[in-house]
Design a protein around this nucleic acid. Structure first.
Lengths: 200, 200, 200, 200
DNA sequence: CATGAATGAGAGTTCATTCAT
DNA sequence: TATGAATGAACTCTCATTCAT
């Protein structure tokens, strides 16, 4: 229970950081602004994290693990899993909550070339997500849902890159139709082509 | 002549900003760091620009117009133009110079949700680039290079989104094979399919 | 038994303070650094001492009483006692342990003009030590070891001041030959002159 | 003239530091307290000195050079120079101004074992002062004022150490009779013995 | 135009101290 | 007794901006 309380404070800090990051953006994120979103005192932030960078590195882990858990929770046959994956990370991104999360991630990513620890954590997560998608394709081939000549890795890369690009453009330009439009095009020009047509 | 000198100083400031941004990143970009890359004094930056935000807004224009000029300079038949476009903005991005430019753009994009002027400038540029690509496809259809059932807008969106996503991931994770891999997949799964096969 | 345990904790705190002071110096001595040298928790320091100043005042008493006990333990005829006194507080100061102790004392002394309680404790101890030395001289005169015209107070002052100065300079400049050189000069120019020459 | 103004600010900072150090002591000396003694803004302190340590290192130089200039200004025959030296640095130290200066120096000295740059500067100055005194003795021997068997280095060490010790004890205990008493003893037991007696 | 000293608000961080357990 | 989370004030230092020259 004592242990829980410590974790609780830790979690509260992560949530406060999330709110502050969404509201102000990475470039103008300060310990004061995090503290403003935090019920307890500013000094306590430094009691739990040695420095701002430590806190933000922990925050990346927090964001990524939420992200990874979300992906891992997808169930069903391969083609439906792929649909759900795309739906969840592109289409549903249009809710305010998801937009804020992806924007926070984008800001941390833009910062990663200047921060080794950020980059390492992001790279690890990227590999995990890519493997998940490639495995969905691979399973689909095995089960005869996707065509045997589809290359799991290549398709996964294309799906992720286009969805990611759509989301980034949608977020940064503020055009909410972007992800939907790209998702439609992705189905029409890529996914439909690798689906095994049952009525032929 | 006075006007020319002013422009020259203006250009020097833009270049200094570019160097400072590439070296330090947006989040830790300060007037002092820009001044360090600038031959003249720090005070002069404020003589030419009322505030840091003014300077950075001008800098976005500077970056985007370079970008747009680059695109506009592509010549040749539609399919070659598309090849060149992809090559220039994805594959060639692996040179240090282009990486730095795209990283600078990414940082400014990540900041745009917190800055209306940034967002407006970026949105305008995005529309221009998307129209250019869509027009290439459209011309290709007219000239019989691309299949008649290809939708210029949809293909342009897909090409841009996937390339952009690949570049972003490549930059932020530091994996230089990303853009190449996605570009290969884009050709295999999308572009080859809309090309009119001359040998059939 | 409870009392003993309290005393034991008290002693542990004094020792921890000593180690922290030797390692970091007075100016950057914090309760945290004392706590780091202490087996138990930081909060306990405040349980035993109302404030940092209370703790340090107690620490001065602890240091000075060690010092005074050391002096009181010197035995033998007056000239040998004087030799031992000089040897113990000047020459032997070159061991790391004694250097650290004297440095700690010097730091507390340098702070005393800003802290009445520090000053009072140090003044009391100074009087004790000076009286001890003067008494050694006085006893020597009575026993015919030192010349009758030697003034106990004046000689004691000179011995203490020169030794103290040598130690301070040795410690602060890091020149370990200082105390030895001054002690040699002190014998040659002062002590030898007041010794009754037995072979004349 | 412009150059002078810059130096002027530098000098003002040194003087402000001196006042703050005398008033509060090294251990509780803050940039804010220095700023409080300074006509201009706190930020300016950091404009002129990269860090607090830089400022204090510059301050040591400032104190020591004042000290060295004072010594160098002593004129007259060797025995009078020695008298003046002792008078100036021991007896006259009882004015508030000199007490403050010597206390400031003592605090910086007590800190020097924890700060290499402090120590180096202090060691250099110590050598200068010791050489000056040894040279006074040496000149006195050459001119027949001091006995030929007096050892300049040894006497200089003893004079400096005893005076320094007397001053330190006087300052830290707050007993103003200390330097006078030790100076009297120094004359009686050391200096009178090495003076060539003209009336014998 | 151009400089660089100067400002003042606010950044990240440290610290003695308190308090619930 | 003993812990360690929590506090709030104060710390060093940075920054965009101003201004006299």
């Amino acid at each position: 229970m004592e242990n829980d309380e410590q974790s609780e404070t830790h979690a509260e800090i992560m949530e406060a950081t999330y709110r502050a990051l969404c509201e102000h953006g990475y470039a103008s994120l300060t310990m004061q602004k995090i503290s403003d979103e935090f019920e307890k005192s500013k000094g306590l932030l430094h009691y739990h994290f040695d420095s701002k960078e430590e806190l933000l590195t922990a925050f990346i882990d927090y964001l990524l693990s939420e992200f990874e858990q979300d992906i891992a929770s997808i169930e069903g046959p391969p083609d439906e899993k792929l649909d759900e994956f795309i739906k969840r990370f592109v289409v549903v991104s249009n809710t305010d909550d998801r937009k804020a999360l992806h924007l926070a991630l984008l800001e941390l990513r833009a910062q990663s070339p200047f921060n080794d620890r950020f980059r390492d954590h992001l790279a690890r997560s990227d590999t995990i997500v890519r493997d998940v998608v490639a495995e969905i394709i691979d399973d689909g081939i095995t089960q005869g849902v996707f065509r045997a000549d589809a290359e799991p890795e290549a398709v996964a890369q294309l799906v992720l890159a286009s969805m990611d690009g759509a989301r980034t453009r949608g977020l940064t330009i503020g055009d909410e139709t972007y992800p939907d439009a790209v998702s439609d095009a992705l189905y029409e020009y890529v996914i439909d082509d690798i689906l095994v047509k049952t009525n032929e």
